[in-house]
Simulated assay, not measured.
Amino acid sequence: MKKLTRSQYKKIAGVCGGISQYINPELDPVIIRAGWLILTLFNPLMLLVYFILALVLSDSPYETV
């Protein structure tokens, strides 16, 4: 069973990296980050959603840097 977690490969909190790993492990997190940025420009509440996800999601126990 797949579980949404924060990624160890992170720029800020690892939320976008975790979402990209959840959708498809071969998906580049830059695509998710760019999409999230575009959504945030049109809807600033997405920034609040990002920080809530950063607090709620646990760290990924499987990845090492």
Results as ranks from 00 to 15, higher is better:
T5W: 08
G17N: 02
I31G: 00
L57T: 13
E26W: 00
K10M: 09
Y62E: 11
K10L: 11
L55M: 10
Y62C: 00
N43Q: 12
A34E: 15
G18W: 02
I52K: 12
I38Q: 07
P61M: 05
L47F: 15
L53Y: 10
F42K: 10
I19W: 03
A34Q: 15
V15H: 02
K3S: 03
M46S: 08
R6S: 06
L4E: 05
I32K: 01
L39W: 10
F42S: 08
R33L: 09
V49E: 07
S7V: 05
N24A: 08
L57A: 14
N24P: 06
P61K: 08
K3R: 03
L39C: 12
V30M: 06
V56L: 14
S20A: 14
G14V: 03
I32S: 01
V56E: 06
G17C: 02
L53N: 04
F51G: 04
F42T: 07
L48G: 06
A34L: 12
K2N: 10
E63P: 06
P44K: 05
V30I: 12
I38N: 04
L47K: 15
G18D: 04
Y22D: 06
L57W: 13
E63M: 08
Q21C: 11
C16V: 07
I19L: 11
Y9C: 06
V65W: 11
S58W: 02
A54S: 13
K3M: 01
D59K: 12
Y62I: 07
E63G: 00
D59Q: 11
P25N: 01
E63I: 11
P29S: 09
V15A: 02
Y50H: 13
F51M: 11
K2C: 04
N24D: 15
L57C: 15
K11F: 13
S20H: 05
L27C: 06
P44N: 02
S60R: 02
L41Q: 13
G35D: 04
L57V: 14
I31C: 00
S20K: 05
S7W: 03
T64S: 13
E26F: 02
I38F: 13
Y50P: 01
Y62K: 08
A54N: 06
I23C: 06
S60P: 03
V56N: 05
K10S: 09
T5G: 04
L47Q: 12
Y22I: 05
Y9P: 01
A34M: 13
Y50K: 00
P61L: 04
E63Y: 08
I32M: 06
N43R: 13
Y9L: 03
M46N: 12
V49T: 13
M1A: 09
R6E: 01
L53M: 14
S20V: 04
V49R: 10
L41S: 10
L39I: 06
L53P: 03
G35A: 04
G14Q: 01
Y9I: 03
I23H: 07
N43E: 12
E26D: 09
P25Q: 01
C16H: 10
P61Q: 05
K3Y: 02
L47H: 14
